[in-house]
Design a binder for these strands. Structure first.
Lengths: 187, 187
DNA sequence: ACCTGCATGTAATTAGTTACATGATTTT
DNA sequence: AAAATCATGTAACTAATTACATGCAGGT
């Protein structure tokens, strides 16, 4: 599943511009799928060429023109076919864990900074998810059940990650104190 | 941080061939960093060109020749510099969550298959982590503290993910039963 | 005066995946 | 007899990132 396909997905909820779609990715997909303008705009152009979306220029006063895209029937079918055939992979690419793996080669302040930076990112992501409409509302429209699952899942992962990192920070503190007391006798 | 850099990292633990490094990636990094032969072999060739590793051909009887790589001092310095400057990003790219987001467009059997497939992957990953040496041993050598953290972290995430999916499966079952009883009166 | 938001795009580069190519040995 | 393990590589392709390019409006 690529950016092109997810653009089709966003358009199943209604017409949108490239700019709108980018915001949708940021607010809603950011914890499991990243995309920037550099991939979204070319994707929309290709989708239009393939007849999966149509494009309508909208001139506004006081603001730049927008290009509003709509899903065609062919686009909807293509998207449904993609949903039916895509393998449910889940890939993690973590420079954070790669750094942690080599913790024994990191100066202690650097190790600390790495953990703090990651915690800050996690807190941002949690805040982002909590702003999501699927998080507050009690009755969920049937077409938002998936959004609800994804934000619950994402939040659960982030909270667990935060706990793990917190526990590790505490363990490091403890080790440092022990080392200070014991190492002079060892050496 | 790219495959090249992580190859240097693997070589800090001792000399290894491309084949060995691939196994190391699979067994130890697979839950946070993927790499295949197609990226590892070219990476090693580039590292050798840059003088960050040296290569020694080893002929074996009954088996193909191996090319065993060793980290040079320059390679070690390059790796340490990378550890000191790499941002601790953590990216997820999940086709699974993308599919789940559009659950309302998935036939029920397909939704079920997606969840089951993901569960199977998660169980495989948990089994992989549990085989890792950092998981059983009680006293951890200081250069394995990071490996220990990473496998704990990975396992915690996978267990939480499994719980989330299990809970969701249960919720779907409940909804189906309710729908069967109520919907005839609604319609 | 400066920054943020709105709005769209392209070109060059990077990095990684996939498929191909080969071949002996050992295990099932 | 077939499949898995050991062992190395290349070439073509795909996809996405980064940097560049432009410009008005509204708020601080």
């Amino acid at each position: 599943m690529d950016v092109k396909t997810l653009c089709l997905g966003v358009l199943t909820f209604g017409d949108a511009s490239g700019y709108d779609i980018k915001k949708y990715f940021e607010r809603t997909f950011s914890h499991f799928f990243a995309a920037g303008y550099g991939s979204i705009y070319p994707a929309l152009a290709e989708l239009a060429d393939a007849g999966l979306v149509t494009c309508q220029k909208v001139t506004q006063e006081g603001r730049p023109d927008r290009k509003v895209y709509s899903l065609t029937e062919s686009g909807r079918q293509t998207f449904l076919h993609e949903l039916a055939t895509t393998a449910p992979l889940h890939k993690v690419r973590s420079e954070f864990l790669a750094l942690m793996f080599f913790a024994h080669l990191l100066p202690p302040e650097r190790l600390n900074a790495v953990l703090e930076e990651r915690l800050a990112d996690i807190n941002n992501s949690i805040a982002m998810i909590e702003q999501c409409p699927a998080q507050q509302s009690k009755d969920i429209p049937h077409d938002a059940a998936g959004m609800h699952f994804c934000s619950n899942y994402g939040k659960a992962m982030l909270l667990r990650a935060r706990d793990c990192i917190g526990a590790h920070q505490a363990a490091i503190q403890k080790t440092l104190k022990t080392t200070v007391k014991i190492s002079p006798q060892k050496n």
